[in-house]
Amino acid sequence: MTGPRSDHDGRADVEELAIRQAELVAALVAGGASPAGFDPARLAATRRALLRKRAGEAAKAWPLLAAAHGAAWPAVFAEHCAGRPPAGPLRDGWDVARALRAGGRLPEAAVTELAEREAALHYDGTSAPTPRRWRRLRRRFFGLRRA
């Protein structure tokens, strides 16, 4: 608890709500500890449902990667993305594709899809992908100055 408060202390209640919301989100998508008082089975089911939803969205951004796995796609996605916060369908799918490639498990049908993405966009694995064309231009105009 955050110091003394009464039942009518709306501000302290909202601060407590912020902490509880953050705990719940962290538990659901970032491998955080289960917050007190929630049904563990329902938390686990919610975690799985969120992963299935993300897998479905990633499949729209990475149709060949998802199709190559067929019905196993949600499980393949969950294997890599469980406990990792959503980064959006493009990056989520990209992370899965790279992890599969690193493990020698990227299906043949998805190799071109990944290669085309990597040719068009620069993705550092932690922030939003940027068009490689912009990077070349930026380097041309600002590169020397930075050096």
Binding site: R20, A22, V25, L28, V29, A30, L50, K53, R54, P85
Partner: peptide
């Protein structure tokens, strides 16, 4: 979402 994390879907409120 909360605390800088997004859940990727709609979550229930207390």
């Amino acid at each position: 979402g909360a605390g800088g994390l997004t859940a990727g879907h709609l979550l229930p409120l207390p």
